[in-house]
């Protein structure tokens, strides 16, 4: 046990938990979590993981802060508009907890860079806002054997599931991205800000429990909620033997990117 007096006080409410204790806190301080997307989901996840003392937190996002982001992306402040999101987020996380080392990647994930970015991390949080990125993250994590938390939000709805090697993956449930235009983006459909906080915080809790190694993760389960009527439900999911990436005869053996029309890229804001 190498906790300093200051750390014992800072993390006392964790240490008090029977399932965390000093040993669990030590694991958190040594852990490395990557957050892809520093928007609606990544903002609360980054703040809670930093507060929790996760020793290394990576942030991937190529965007700058837009005024319309501030309604839900609580890590960014009004003065941060036009700054790189990863820089804005890093500053808040370091101010919150000097124990945390923040590594920034001011870029979008793509089929060529993602494997190298996720390589050094223990757990990955998908906080992106578009289907091509979500499938790319799933595929990269499955091929690299990395656990990750999927999260998606729209209007008042949220859904999340966790993958660990051997459990059902995102493609087991959702075979391929929906047809272009079938599902609106947040910038078209809107999103209640607090819904992003609810889901991003669930994702942070998944990462923390994965690291601590206690409790039951959201593996082989899809958690769905609707915040308009405040209803939660769970759908049991199973590994699909026909899954194109983790099935018995995979057809995806290297990373591919679904098409992303230029007009969409330009108008898109991170969820």
């Amino acid at each position: 046990m190498n906790l300093t007096e200051e750390q014992i006080e800072r993390y006392s409410r964790h240490i008090l938990l029977k399932d965390v204790g000093g040993a669990g806190q030590e694991k958190l301080l040594q852990a490395k979590v990557l957050i892809i997307g520093t928007g609606g989901l990544g903002a609360p996840a980054a703040l809670y993981l930093a507060a929790a003392g996760v020793g290394t937190i990576g942030l991937v996002d190529g965007d700058t802060v837009d005024l319309s982001n501030l309604q839900r992306q609580v890590i960014h402040f009004t003065a941060d508009v036009n700054r790189l999101k990863v820089e804005s987020a890093r500053e808040k996380m370091e101010a919150l907890n000097p124990d945390v080392r923040v590594v920034t990647y001011p870029e979008r994930v793509n089929k060529d860079n993602i494997a190298a970015i996720i390589r050094d991390y223990d757990f990955i949080i998908d906080g992106t806002d578009n289907f091509p990125a979500k499938f790319l993250i799933n595929d990269a994590c499955v091929l690299s054997g990395k656990p990750f938390s999927h999260g998606g939000i729209l209007r008042f709805d949220g859904q999340t599931m966790t993958y660990v090697p051997g459990s059902a993956c995102y493609r087991c449930v959702f075979n391929a991205p929906p047809p272009k235009g079938a599902v609106p983006t947040c910038s078209e459909a809107g999103i209640l800000g607090a819904v992003a906080g609810m889901l991003g915080t669930v994702q942070a809790a998944e990462a923390l429990r994965y690291i601590i190694g206690k409790g039951r993760l959201l593996t082989n389960r899809l958690l769905i909620f609707n915040a308009l009527d405040m209803e939660y439900r769970q759908v049991n999911i199973r590994r699909n033997p026909e899954c194109p990436i983790c099935g018995e005869h995979p057809t995806i053996t290297e990373l591919v990117e679904a098409e992303q029309p230029i007009c969409d890229l330009r108008s898109r804001y991170h969820a």
Partner: peptide, 14 residues
């Protein structure tokens, strides 16, 4: 409290 209990727990963990 609760730091006294936190420190007791940490000692017990060893």
């Amino acid at each position: 409290c609760p730091l006294n209990f936190v420190k007791t727990k940490l000692a017990l963990e060893t």
